[in-house]
């Protein structure tokens, strides 16, 4: 099976004044892959991701997302991706239905499509009784699953998840990862940043950013073998210490 490149990054850099937040990173992500984008706070992973989703302009370098250049064809990039921020990004004072309608609307879905999607999504998440409840009244875990489903409304080729499981209990996290697997099986590419090293084990491949550069990129299995440790946590610690 030939792997289809869906994200191709070449020497991508971002500089703020004298500070180099992202220092010439290059990597590729394949279709249907779950790609873990790891790094400590301040390592530059958020900046790198912002360039990929078209809300921050690269200082230099190239990035193709879903075949479109993030510098020149931001519009098409935005249409091809879904995004879920760590703040869950739904409106607490709108009901589930209103949130879905709104987000469907800004991605240009028709009224019928929205209606269809709403029914499907609500039954999948077993939220039939809560559809007219305000999102603010839902438990965090539900908000998170809902937020993920909303990011997928317009059937994007790639979904970017920015630390999606912050503050959620382990069982919900487990369920959430099951949703991610199911989506990846359908061929959607998942690009996920996370703090949790156990989650890194769930990814097909992970990259680890340290101080603006990608220090390692491989499958979790190969990385553990390479650094001769038992868990991704140890891989991460080893890399971070080398730099210090």
């Amino acid at each position: 099976m030939t792997k289809e490149k869906i994200i191709a990054v070449q020497n991508l850099s971002k500089q703020f004044g004298n500070f180099i937040a992202v220092n010439s990173i290059s990597f590729e992500v394949y279709k249907g892959e779950i790609f873990g984008f790891l790094g400590a706070n301040g390592a530059g992973k958020t900046t790198a991701m912002k360039m990929l989703i078209g809300i921050s302009k690269p200082t230099s370098g190239e990035a193709l997302v879903a075949g479109f250049d993030v510098k020149t064809n931001t519009e098409m990039v935005k249409r091809s991706i879904g995004y879920m921020s760590q703040k869950f990004s739904m409106y607490d004072d709108l009901t589930i239905k209103e949130n879905i309608t709104f987000f469907g609307g800004i991605y240009g879905l028709s009224r019928n499509q929205i209606k269809e999607k709403t029914e499907k999504l609500v039954s999948q998440l077993e939220l039939e009784d809560a559809v007219d409840k305000l999102v603010g009244s839902l438990p965090l875990g539900w908000k998170q699953k809902l937020s993920f489903s909303v990011a997928l409304l317009h059937e994007p080729k790639i979904v970017f998840l920015d630390e999606p499981t912050g503050g959620v209990d382990p069982i919900t996290r487990r369920q959430f990862w099951e949703m991610i697997y199911a989506e990846a099986d359908k061929g959607t590419t998942i690009f996920v940043t996370t703090h949790y090293m156990d989650e890194a084990e769930y990814c097909d491949r992970v990259s680890i950013m340290v101080e603006g550069s990608i220090e390692a990129l491989d499958t979790p299995k190969n990385l553990k073998k390479k650094y001769n440790v038992a868990s991704m946590n140890d891989v991460f610690l080893k890399l971070a210490r080398n730099v210090e």
């Binding site: 078209g54 921020s85 703040k87 409106y91 800004i106 991605y107």
Partner: peptide, 13 residues
């Protein structure tokens, strides 16, 4: 503040 602005900016709007 809520982070929804980011989501709006990532959308095709």
């Amino acid at each position: 503040e809520l982070g929804t602005m980011e989501v709006l900016l990532v959308s095709p709007l």
